[in-house]
Amino acid sequence: MRMQSSDWGDRRHPCRWMAETGEAGFWVPDRSEIVTQFFTRYLFFSLAVIYFSTLEGVPPVLFSIEQLLVALGVYFFLNSGFFHQALRGVTLLKIRSAMSADLLIVTLCVIHDPNPIPPSALAFLMVLLGNGMRYGMRLFTEVLGGVFLGMAISFALRYRLGGFEVSAGDVFFGVFWVTLALYAYILMGRIEGQRRQLDYRSRFDALTGLLNRHGLLAAADSIFDKTNTSIPATVLFADLNQFKAVNDRYGHGAGDRVLAEFAQIFSESADMGVCGRWGGDEFVAILPLREAAAVHQIFERIEVRTAAWSHSNGLPMAVSLGVSHAPRDGHDLVTLLSVADIHLYQSKSQQSETAAAPPNYRTLIDEPEAS
């Protein structure tokens, strides 16, 4: 199945960030984090079974002890199903379903806890921290609201139907719990901000604002799906000519200015592409499959804008360009760049032979195979 053009937007988020629209999304935990999270659920399930099974009797608020254990058993099977689904891929629906099951079973346990100050209410904090701190602030806010609702319902039913009375210990426990939850929310907000900042720095080039090599490889992994090796794509490779001479003659400040300006020209010219700085004065764009005429127009647009900027600013800036096509030339970014690099050096050779004449794009652009 071909990737639609809408899937080729600016992939500014990392491979572990699942974006929905704009900045809205959630962090996707890796396999080890998923395993840890669900085994923690199994641990608290086991503790709940042991805790309620060893009690001589539970006040019949809603369920008997036997019915509560049945509810715990249902939760066990639901949790196992969610575990299996999470290993196959994490989505918002799966996350919310598992969190809802957590909130429901903890609410039932707190309602039926026979102790005046129920220790089972501490499990609400585990639901909050175990879910909210893993997926980002959006889901943290959702689970925080769910936890407050669960606490309110469970204690209201305890006082209403279970015969419990409000004590000073209950008040202290409630104030302590709310304070701890709000502190965790504030702390999570700061951690999330630092996490986003570190993620941005690891994925983006500070000078040009484009993806760096690490970010390009991550974006390429999501484009060239390993389960589908026939995704059509076009890869453009650009290399600034004599960039070292610019640094040596005009200084590194001028060189940085050239790089930043060319990055803007390159990214704006490669419409609907994932653009990045591969390293030094090398730039890469990954586009949906383009015909030879379309690639020629992109190359010409880059060349014209580059020459115009160089003329108006008095700084030398020229570029050699190469192209490759997937799946004909390869199924991963590194292989495709190797092919594009060959075409790029053909471009440099032709520029040397023609003594600064514009490159003959048609000799550098191989017609992609019809798909």
Rank of each mutant, 00 (worst) to 15 (best):
S347P: 01
N131M: 11
E268M: 01
P327F: 08
H343I: 02
Y159M: 09
S230L: 13
V61D: 05
R203N: 13
C275Y: 04
G174A: 10
M18R: 15
S352D: 15
A292F: 02
F173D: 10
S202G: 13
V171L: 15
F26K: 02
F38M: 08
T91W: 01
F63Y: 10
D170A: 07
A181P: 01
D329L: 07
V274T: 08
T54E: 10
Y361Q: 03
H84E: 02
I111S: 08
A220Q: 09
L43Q: 02
M126V: 14
D102V: 05
L182Y: 10
H331G: 01
S312H: 12
L315D: 05
S324R: 07
G57A: 11
L315W: 11
G136C: 07
S371I: 07
A152E: 03
D248P: 15
Q85L: 05
G73T: 13
S230H: 05
V166Y: 14
T354A: 13
A206K: 05
P316N: 09
F237G: 01
W8G: 11
L315Q: 14
S64N: 07
L210M: 01
A370S: 04
F45V: 06
A370D: 03
N115H: 10
Q350L: 13
L364C: 10
P358Q: 11
N313K: 12
E66F: 07
L122P: 00
V304K: 05
P119W: 10
F172I: 13
A219H: 04
E33R: 13
I231S: 02
Y183L: 11
G330E: 02
T306W: 05
A218W: 03
E369C: 02
H311T: 12
P288F: 08
I302M: 15
G280Q: 01
A357V: 06
L187D: 14
A245Y: 06
R362C: 12
N228W: 05
D256S: 14
I117H: 08
S202A: 15
A19L: 09
L128F: 12
G22K: 08
F155P: 03
N228D: 12
S320Y: 06
M126I: 12
